[in-house]
Design a protein around this nucleic acid. Structure first.
Lengths: 182, 182
DNA sequence: TGTTACCTATCTAACGATAGATAGACACAA
DNA sequence: TTGTGTCTATCTATCGTTAGATAGGTAACA
């Protein structure tokens, strides 16, 4: 992949994570890179293609990061914390919500191929978390708990950036791990 | 407020909750109502004004519904459940995520006046939930727990609609109230 | 009563800006 | 010479927005 292509994906990812799919235009991306918008079409024939490539790269990087962090984790809870840390890093490293969080909200207004990738990302998230949950939890409860963790992470990013209080993300996710007083 | 004005707000709210602020145009709204886009400008000079009016109406209706449901609630937990029920009804009654959930994700791409209203909506949410939380919880933990509940609700709407599994919302929110096994 | 003035709600028509997209030429490197 | 990457130039469609006309209703006034 060429350097320009990579810069293109970077710019598009930033823009979408900040303001949404429909708020990002080929012209803006081209201007940011110092090229012409027709050159953007050279890399991605349609905007939809750019979106799909974006989610693919994002998803690949995301799970690579999760796996890397989970490698050194001993317990189930440590694996879960590693997962949440990937989200946290995505937020605090860029002040932007998850790419798929944004696209997930916009689902109904997206090209089908793009919406399908986002759906796949979420399903993979839930599958990963389910695996990390304590095995003595019944299977159906594991799925619900996994979905809850995913929803909390996504919602926490959205609320925290919207309120411009990034610490809120930590507070929210921290409460997720709190042991109930016995 | 005239009937046309009301239909206008309805159409705009539906569109934004489905696909986002930038995906909704005055022309589309006008077409849906069977009027001209210039007539939309008669009611709202700028798109920003329409957005602000939309959040104001949404917020007013939202808290009216919450209060109505909470009226008959005896315990703190019942009040909280009433709050969540308002969200659930917004989702299942329309297959759309929260208006402010969508706008919150798009915050960085919105006119400031609009982003401010969304922020105010979330702050009011957190304040309401905090009040409903058990008073013997320390104040700072109440705020974190309130933010967590809000984030979970918002995230649950997004994930559930994105995966087209609306039952998932109930599973997620249900897990929020689950008593830990002692 | 008749007239004048304003208000409401809509229209036609157009503005400049921007959207996504395409065709074809050019330069350069393998 | 073939492919890669970028350009110029352009297209059609749509964006938010504005100006100005029109018709009907209401209210004040002579």
């Amino acid at each position: 992949m060429s350097a320009t292509n990579e810069r293109l994906l970077d710019a598009a990812e930033n823009g979408i994570r900040l303001s949404g799919y429909h708020a990002v235009s080929f012209r803006d991306l081209a201007d940011e890179l110092g090229i012409k918008s027709s050159s953007v079409h050279y890399y991605y024939r349609q905007k939809e293609d750019l979106g799909v490539a974006l989610v693919d790269r994002y998803s690949k990087r995301f799970f690579a990061d999760v796996e890397k962090r989970a490698e050194t984790a001993g317990t189930d809870e440590e694996r879960l914390r590693a997962f949440c840390q990937t989200y946290r890093n995505a937020l605090t490293g860029s002040d932007r919500i998850c790419l798929c969080g944004m696209l997930g909200a916009e689902t109904c207004g997206l090209p089908k191929a793009l919406a399908d990738r986002v759906e796949a990302f979420f399903n993979a998230n839930i599958a990963w978390i389910s695996d990390a949950l304590n095995a003595d939890m019944p299977a159906d409860k594991r799925a619900a708990r996994a979905a809850q963790i995913l929803a909390t992470l996504q919602g926490a990013m959205m609320v925290a950036t919207s309120l411009k209080k990034h610490r809120l993300f930590d507070d929210i996710v921290g409460a997720l791990f709190e042991k109930p007083k016995s």
